[in-house]
């Protein structure tokens, strides 16, 4: 294996992988060194990406082009990002930080509006319709699903949704001794909902474990490949 950039990057990758894996023995300075380095590198990389892929192509470059061409009418829209850019920079000074609230208010307002609209049109309504469609035999036939399967899936889905929502209903009466007492049907539904929630969390945990296991396997495979390549065994 020749001394190349791949060797250097591979060696650094090997080193930091070992440092991260050292967390198995607990929090230690080696792990902290690796974490600090990753955080620093990630921050620098993020700053570079933001400048070269956001500010430069979408703010500075258009401005330069407008100044070069003299077509200031096209640059009218650039006034808004420039103002927002200037206002955000006011956060540097505590006395002028209030000016940055204008830009922040704009961003938060626009983001909230976009999020709510997207959630309404992209999640809530489609999911409600999808829950109902589970009981539509025509759709099941279109998907090549039998009626029993559709009925079974729809029933499980309906029970799971109802019981899960019932679990998060925290209304209760107060017993003579002061302790809360749920309404009996709600208490029963919530108990069933706990099962669905448990299963869901178990599935998510399995997925997390599977993802982490895949990442660890990839890292171990990298280490083995690097060592075998370094030792000339491959």
């Amino acid at each position: 294996m020749a001394f190349s950039l791949d060797l250097v990057t591979g060696a650094l990758g090997f080193l930091f992988t070992v440092l991260i894996l050292s967390y198995l023995i607990g929090d230690n300075p080696l792990f902290k060194i690796a974490v600090y380095l990753f955080v620093g590198v990630a921050s620098g990389y993020t700053a570079a990406v933001v400048f070269w892929q956001v500010l430069y192509p979408k703010l500075f470059l258009p401005t330069v082009l407008i100044l070069q061409t003299g077509d200031f009418m096209r640059g009218v829209l650039l006034v808004v990002p420039w103002l927002g850019f200037a206002f955000i920079l006011m956060k540097i000074s505590p006395r002028l930080a209030g000016i940055a609230r204008i830009t922040m208010a704009f961003l938060v307002g626009a983001g909230a509006a976009v999020t709510i609209a997207g959630a309404l049109t992209g999640t809530i309504i489609p999911q409600m319709i999808a829950t109902i469609d589970f009981f539509d035999p025509s759709l099941a036939a279109a998907r090549n699903i039998s009626a029993f399967e559709v009925l079974g899936n729809g029933t499980i889905l309906l029970v799971g949704v109802v019981t899960t929502l019932a679990y998060f209903h925290f209304g209760a009466r107060q017993k003579p001794d002061g302790s809360p007492k749920r309404f009996a049907p709600i208490d029963l539904l919530s108990w069933i909902g706990r099962i669905f929630i448990g299963i869901t969390l178990g599935v998510i945990f399995a997925g997390v474990y599977a993802a982490a296991l895949s990442a660890m396997i990839e890292r171990i495979n990298f280490l083995i490949n690097f060592l075998t390549s370094l030792l000339g065994m491959s």
Partner: peptide
Amino acid sequence: SSAQAAPMIQPYYDSGQ
């Protein structure tokens, strides 16, 4: 998707999105 995100994306598949 990753294995950890697949269960959360599954409803969008079931809804046809």
